[in-house]
Simulated scan of single mutants.
Amino acid sequence: MIDFQKNSVFKLSPARTESVAPEVAPLIIPGEQIVFCFKTVRDFVVFTTKRLIAVNVQGMTGKKKDFTTLPYSKIQAFSIETAGTFDLDAELDLWFSGLGNVRLEFRGGADVRQIAHLIAMQAL
């Protein structure tokens, strides 16, 4: 899902927490809470109070999944681009220490300012 060599971009739409929480529940540590969830057709991204969890659903059946955890403490910089009148997509760029850049593109309906606020509260 996240290709650190190619700066992969994938379009995410807001999702209900209940639809993805069971998948990431085994990864959640005490005191950590899910804040935002976004999905593509099969893949999804979860923003918690401590990290970003990207889940790549693989194969025809979707039983195989790749979980990538990106802790906010490793973020060196980030930027957002909000949606406009004609360009309804918003973007979030994150630069991680030792990993490089990760870009997430959100379809209309996602308030990237709220995501930026969460990241700022945890990373700064």
Rank of each mutant, 00 (worst) to 15 (best):
M1P: 11
I2N: 09
I2D: 11
F4Y: 15
Q5T: 13
Q5D: 12
K6C: 06
N7P: 00
S8T: 14
S8W: 09
S8Q: 13
S8V: 10
F10P: 02
K11I: 14
S13A: 15
P14A: 15
P14M: 11
A15P: 01
A15S: 09
T17A: 08
S19V: 08
S19A: 07
S19G: 00
S19W: 05
V20F: 01
V20I: 10
P22V: 03
P22K: 02
V24H: 03
V24Q: 01
A25I: 06
A25K: 12
A25H: 01
P26F: 02
L27R: 09
L27D: 07
L27G: 01
I28T: 06
I28F: 04
I28M: 08
P30N: 10
P30S: 12
G31K: 14
G31L: 13
G31Y: 08
E32R: 06
I34P: 01
V35T: 09
V35P: 09
F36S: 05
C37W: 06
C37Q: 00
K39D: 11
T40H: 13
T40V: 06
V41C: 06
V41N: 12
F44S: 02
F44M: 04
V45W: 03
V46C: 04
V46Q: 03
F47R: 05
F47I: 02
T48M: 01
T49P: 01
R51T: 07
L52K: 06
I53V: 12
I53F: 00
I53D: 03
V55H: 03
N56R: 11
G59W: 04
M60G: 05
T61D: 05
G62I: 04
K64I: 10
K65E: 03
K65N: 03
D66Q: 11
F67I: 02
T69Y: 08
L70Q: 04
Y72C: 02
S73A: 08
S73P: 00
I75H: 03
Q76G: 12
A77F: 09
I80L: 09
I80K: 07
E81G: 12
T82M: 10
T82D: 13
D87I: 10
D87C: 00
D89E: 13
D89S: 13
D89K: 13
A90D: 03
E91I: 00
L92Q: 05
L92V: 07
L92K: 05
D93F: 11
W95Q: 08
S97H: 14
G100M: 03
N101F: 08
V102A: 07
V102C: 07
V102K: 05
R103Q: 09
R103C: 09
L104P: 03
E105Q: 15
F106D: 07
F106Y: 12
R107H: 14
R107E: 15
G108N: 15
D111F: 06
V112D: 09
V112C: 11
V112N: 08
R113N: 10
R113Q: 14
R113Y: 01
I115Q: 11
I115V: 14
A116L: 02
A116D: 06
A116K: 08
L118D: 06
L118E: 10
I119F: 05
I119N: 05
A120P: 00
M121I: 01
Q122S: 14
